[in-house]
Write a protein that binds this DNA or RNA. Structure first.
Length: 694
RNA sequence: CGCGGGGUGGAGCAGCCCGGUAGCUCGCGAGGCUCAUAACCUCGAGGUCGCAGGUUCGAAUCCUGUCCCCGCCA
């Protein structure tokens, strides 16, 4: 057949930061990229998948310091952990480098020289908060203080979570360094900037006309950045900083976001050193190679503005495609440690099969920037019905009839089923190419449905009992089913490399080419069938969630002493409470606002001897504001255990005269059918008395 | 009128570009099969395709308006 010239495709995923472990959110990207690369290879293209650890920056420096070891020691340990996690999910990099490598240092210097040479680097004084005790300038996130606009306490240095204000760390009232706990002082230092405004015209054209970006992304950039002059990009940090010192600016280091993307180049060079060729073969201006970056939507501007600007200035090739995906939510919400939905790659691998997550993500990814949701109930049903019930089941129900006879010598009449699925191949390939894996999976599953219906209609189990004269027909029917299975295994090979290997072991040998989906096999031996994939048991998912909850529960306990995390297992919450007490009539936000709920600290608690249920509490709302109130929680809490803890009170409740005194408010607690008891509410760590609930 | 995405049977989605009987998976109900990892197959209930107008012989699909939800971190 006419084979088009082989494409040469360099593919990258964003570099994971060496400050933390890989979690299921990261894996959306690595799985997406890995599937794409495997697809290209299966189609006969040359594709290399490059990545590296992102190792520099303040966060690494601080963490290493806290752990009492060197940055390089920390980074080396995390690299091992990352590689093990990736391997566990069958993510097969061709090279995995590090931004802390000699190649990267040299390439940073070269790009820097190019920027200097074009007059794009300027120096300017920047005022930042300096922690004298720790001896370092503080990034925004290492400063906390009171919001200058709304006076909310304990806000980070860049914006206020309470009122949404954005500001500089130096604007904070009473700033505190989270490193040393001391008050940092403003200090000014020289920073180096890249004046990318000089490349504004180029970026305008490139974002719109190169075809590298989805038009929606180009439009977003036009609206948010390119509609006005581009701000200079601050690319240096004064010492101390873990990174590369800038050769022509002693005492200054490249900002981590400067050297990170250059890590793509360094990884390429390192790959070439091992496999031949040169950097210019891939990144040269006139190279015919394609460059595809897979990234998350949070780092869009780095890869669509700064990075192309750097490449342009350095005279290198620009990305062919920047493919942007959304975030992962778990059961519809952001991953959260306190909710027990912060799922690490390692925890997943301890409980579940990596192929299942690869398939689930593939079934969800449609090539857009929408967030994708890992709904664990859906995960279970989808994996079980699609992979186990449909695909694997095809082999499971027919392979054993061929163990002795092997495949029929000639592929039998199957009513056009194989040809139909073969014809689907081009549509499936187009979907893969567009990263619309969801469409590809849907199409593949339809083929699996048709195959199962075929088996059902032909009733091979009856043929098996019918005696020797039906043996030929039985072999034909089973041969069709097994060919249809293997055909599906070819289509799924980018997503499920393990399954495709097993399919190859069962019949026909290793799957190496997409073309194998186009012609059925005949006259080959069939191996003994071994189960290819186990179904997901709900208990496995529960165990994963329990494992995710544990560290959070510990942290919670140490903070609050008495409080413990509720068992909050997804999908198994009892219905007693909600059934016993249906929801109240709808109210408006105004109705809700009338009730002034505040965080309060219990400063005194005593029994009311004459009362059956009441404790007398004194709570602080901050400053001098206190309330004395009676709470119906006697018997559930020992008074002394309550002192000091934070609760929620209705602060504007009309005072009420009771037999034992005046109650000036009400403590909020949960109770209802399903469990006896009264459960006080506690805010997350960081809440302070007087804060309002809204 | 800031930009963009979305609103389709209980849940999650496809269909919309190129108008023509509303489809898939899960769940639910009934039946079948018993080869298969309580898997598979068939049938059924369930939707005025956010709302209101318009174009058209005909609109989920095109146009206008409107409501609601989500995202927009140099």
């Amino acid at each position: 057949m006419p084979s088009s010239p082989q494409r040469r495709i360099l593919v990258t995923s964003a570099l994971p930061y060496a400050n933390g472990h890989i979690h299921l959110g990261h894996l959306v990207e690595y799985i997406q990229t890995d599937v794409y690369v495997r697809f290209q290879r299966l189609r006969g293209q040359q594709a290399i998948y490059l990545c590296a650890d992102d190792t520099h920056g303040t966060a690494i420096m601080i963490r290493a310091r806290a752990e009492g070891r060197s940055e390089r020691d920390l980074v080396a340990g995390m690299r091992e952990a990352h590689l093990a996690d990736f391997a566990g999910f069958q993510i097969a990099f061709d090279h995995y480098g590090s931004t802390d490598s000699p190649a990267n240092r040299r390439l940073c210097a070269e790009i820097w020289q190019a920027l200097r040479g074009r007059g794009l680097v300027v120096a300017r004084q920047v005022q930042q908060l300096f922690d004298a005790a720790a001896g370092t300038f503080l990034a925004d996130r290492f400063v906390k203080g009171t919001c200058p606009r709304c006076a909310a306490a304990d806000q980070y240095g860049d914006n206020c979570e309470q009122c949404g204000a954005t500001y500089a760390p130096a604007d904070l009232v009473d700033p505190v360094s989270t490193l040393s706990g001391t008050r940092p002082e403003p200090r000014s230092a020289e920073h180096l900037f890249v004046t990318i405004e000089a490349l504004h015209g180029f970026l305008d054209r490139w974002t719109r006309e190169s075809g590298a970006l989805d038009p929606r992304i180009a439009n977003y950039l036009a609206g948010h950045f390119l509609g006005e002059p581009l701000r200079d990009w601050d690319v240096s940090r004064p010492a101390p900083y873990f990174g590369f010192e800038i050769p022509d600016a002693p005492g200054h280091f490249w900002y981590v976001w400067f050297d990170a993307p250059i890590g793509y180049l360094a990884a390429t060079e390192e790959w070439c050193a091992a496999h031949g060729g040169t950097l210019a073969d891939w990144w040269g201006r006139d190279s015919a190679a394609e460059i595809h970056h897979f990234i998350g939507k949070d780092i869009t501007y780095f890869h669509t503005l700064f990075w192309p600007a750097m490449l342009e200035a350095a005279g290198l090739a620009l990305p062919t495609k920047v493919r942007i995906h959304g975030f992962l939510t778990v059961n519809g919400q952001k991953m959260s440690k306190t909710r027990g939905t912060f799922l690490s790659a390692r925890a997943y691998l301890d409980h579940l099969d990596p192929g299942m997550l690869r398939y689930y993500y593939a079934a969800k990814l449609s090539g857009g920037i929408d967030d994708i949701d890992l709904n664990l109930e859906e995960f279970t049903s989808k994996v079980n019905s699609d992979l186990v019930g449909k695909v694997v089941n095809l082999a499971s129900r027919t392979a054993r009839w061929l163990e002795r006879s092997g495949l029929a010598a000639r592929y039998p009449d199957d009513g056009g089923l194989f040809a139909m699925a073969a014809a689907d191949g081009s549509a499936i390939a187009e979907a893969y190419e567009a990263c619309d894996f969801a469409r590809a999976m849907r199409t593949i599953m339809l083929a699996a449905d048709r195959a199962n219906a075929y088996v059902d209609a032909e009733q091979p189990w009856k043929l098996a009992k019918a005696g020797p004269e039906a043996a030929g027909r039985l072999q034909d029917v089973a041969s069709v089913a097994l060919n249809l299975f293997r055909q599906i295994a070819v289509y799924l090979a980018p997503v499920l490399p393990r399954l495709s290997e097993q399919a190859g072991t069962l019949v026909g040998g290793p799957i190496r080419s997409w073309e194998e989906s186009q012609r059925p096999l005949a006259g080959l031996p069939v191996a003994g069938f071994t189960p290819l994939m186990q179904r997901v048991e709900p208990g496995q998912v529960e165990a994963l969630l329990a494992a995710a909850r544990e560290p959070a529960a510990e942290a919670k306990t140490t903070q609050h002493g008495g409080t413990t995390m509720d068992a909050n297992t997804v999908g198994t919450d009892p219905a007693a409470a909600i059934e016993a007490e249906p929801l109240a009539a709808q109210c408006t936000i105004d109705d809700f606002t009338k009730v002034d709920l505040r965080v309060a600290r219990i400063v005194a608690a005593e029994e009311v001897p004459e009362a059956k249920k009441l404790l007398k509490l004194t709570v602080s709302l901050g400053g001098d504001v206190t309330r004395t109130l009676f709470a119906g929680i006697k018997g559930f809490h020992a008074p002394e255990s309550l002192v000091g803890r934070l609760v929620v009170v209705v602060a504007n409740l009309a005072p009420r005269q009771m037999k034992f005194g005046t109650s000036e408010g009400m403590v909020v607690a949960a109770s209802g059918a399903g469990a006896a008891g009264v459960y006080l509410l506690s805010p997350d760590a960081g809440a302070l008395p007087g804060m309002r609930l809204r």
